[in-house]
Amino acid sequence: MWTICKRELKGYFYSPQAYILMGFFLLLTGFLFSDFVIRGNSPNIQYAMSSWPIIFLFIAPMLTMKLFTEEKKNGTEKLIFSSPISVEKVVLGKFFSACLVYLIALSLTLIHVILVVILGKPDMGIIFSSYLGNILLGFAFLSVGVFASSLTENQIIAGIISFGLLLFFWLVDLLQSMFSGVSKELIKVLSLFEPYAPFQSGIVSLSGVIYYLSFTGVFLFLTIRIIRSRWLQ
């Protein structure tokens, strides 16, 4: 698994891809920081952080779209799947590599935290839970991206599919008011946004953690299924 993960990380950092995406993320989070914290003169960094997922919604598809499509294009999936390594490990390896790039990008934003700690008295609990929420939500986004990249041989199409899916899981929340009863509950289950709110207000909800982890698990499982049924059949 780490073999695959390591190779993908090399792929990210040997090309400008990871730097561009991380730079993009830092630039936009920097904008939010200067707007909410510096211009608003408030140490409450969590208000800036609440918009991070929207930025990552655009970045996650770009980060994941090449993971499986590239293997198909190079024909290297034949090398990987004729080697003594299981499909599960390949999928997890690729997923973790994208997660690591995301975590590196997030860790670079800790500079915002350092700044507010120096300049004011922020609520560290809320900052911690906001980071945790962003990490979990980010992993869920990436699992959707990994899934999309196993569906097609074309990077662009994979990117569009994952962006479309993420947008759906994000905006499905808006439909809540139109429904009631069971369908409303169903929409709540589909909405990635719904469990994110408590993290922003400093609550680490167990149900939220479980929700995001299972969401991620479902998409990774679907990816494994797709590879087994479409690539190896």
Binding site: G11, T76, K78, L79, P84
Partner: peptide, 17 residues
């Protein structure tokens, strides 16, 4: 699979390595 070495029709190479 440990006992097999496979060369597909187009060699499965990573161009950037």
């Amino acid at each position: 699979k440990r006992h097999i070495g496979y060369l597909p029709e187009t060699p499965p190479l990573y161009p950037e390595m």
